[in-house]
Design a protein around this nucleic acid. Structure first.
Lengths: 222, 222
DNA sequence: GCAAAAGTGTTCTAGGTACACCCATGT
DNA sequence: ACATGGGTGTACCTAGAACACTTTTGC
């Protein structure tokens, strides 16, 4: 039941920063640690990489096991390996980030029954290890990748209004955008297409529903 | 003399892609492997991370030990961890890349006397492990970071001509650039400053020598 | 004087930014 | 009828792209 090596080997983990937008806030999924170190503190989901799985598979598995979130596309963020980042032993962590649409946040109770919650990125609690650093870097990366990718659409359900999409950009970039310019750019880039449907949800003109251009129903992005 | 753990731990290494420009070519530093696997094949410098050093320190140390190259600023590139990327055991590698100026390429003989050589990135030999993949990714990253950073200047000696600098851009981007627009952009960005000196090296008008703006003599970039 | 690289401005185009009003609905 | 968010076009400005000739030197 012991594994031995001729030279010292560090432990390798993955940590995953999952973003969503709820209640007009950019939020991150955290779990409460049930055992030391940092017992009771909030931390990113993640865990040890198994010998037979790739890093991304490990991240995906841990995320599903600990939070019930699956089917998210993950991007590698950075690898953190300061010798003292974990007080127990040398732990190197490969961080990933991803986005879940607000309409399917079924974070089923974690298998190990640990507490699980979404936090506004603006008001995070004290985080375990160097996780605050990881989240900060993930935010920066998310903002940097917004233009020139379709990440923003990953926050959206299949059909969405342009106002909703604009709100995603504004929350991530942290600044207001001009409505007309925003729409013009999307149309010019050919990113969205009209579904022909509308949504009415208040005392105002109904909003047209769009989808990411290129996929009708189910299909590949890009 | 054996290290034991309750759970299996992968080995963790760093690999370093060092670029330079020599003979009007973008080149990469490789070492010849002296032992299996891939004995005799060319590979990136790198090796196991020690327990008490950070990942970047490990990369820097391995680079110095194996190639004699030091004082290079390294950027983390990506972490590669496919389960079968090393036939011996599970090895996860954190890849870094960096740039050395052509005027101090003192690649002193490696401590372990392995062969060491610069290769044109266009004509690489067969590389060990997934190192071809790593080099490809490093090239893309280098090109992507060219604008909006001062990486290009790391290829240059302290003083350089604008034609030399332009050649760096052209080699990395793989396309010819307009001389006037190139100079205009550098000046507009305030990146270079005239040293007042000239270089004459042929039957033509001497070229003015510039340096990276902001540092007179020795000083910090940015 | 000729070959060879250094140096230098202007015009055009496209993309980004600023900006204000009418429209369709629910109550 | 009024409050609420949805939807639309034009003018300006700036950054990037295209483009050709003169200068200074070594031989």
């Amino acid at each position: 039941m012991a594994y031995r090596y001729e030279y010292p080997h560090p432990a390798v983990t993955t940590d995953i920063v999952v973003f969503t937008i709820r209640q007009d806030e950019l939020e991150v999924l955290l779990i409460e640690r049930e055992s030391p170190p940092f017992q009771g503190a909030w931390a990113l989901p993640g865990g040890f990489v198994n010998p037979e799985e790739s890093l991304e598979e490990g991240a995906r598995r841990e995320l599903a096991e600990e939070t019930g979130v699956s089917g998210v596309s993950l991007e590698q963020l950075y690898t953190f390996g300061e010798p003292d980042r974990d007080p127990r032993e040398r732990v190197i962590t490969v961080a990933y980030y991803g986005v879940v649409p607000a309409d399917r946040l079924e974070t089923r109770a974690a298998s190990d029954a640990a507490a699980l919650a979404w936090f506004d990125v603006q008001e995070l609690p004290e985080l375990a290890f160097d996780h605050a650093h990881i989240v900060r870097m993930a935010r920066e990366r998310l903002a940097a990748r917004l233009d020139g990718s379709t990440i923003a659409f990953q926050f959206m359900p299949e059909m969405f209004t342009l106002s909703d999409l604009q709100r995603v950009y504004e929350l991530i970039l942290g600044q207001a955008l001009d409505k007309r310019n925003f729409r013009k750019k999307l149309v010019a880039a050919g990113l969205v297409e009209d579904t022909g449907e509308e949504r009415r949800d208040g005392a105002h003109r109904p909003a047209k529903l769009y989808r990411l251009a290129g996929r009708r129903g189910v299909g590949a992005i890009r």
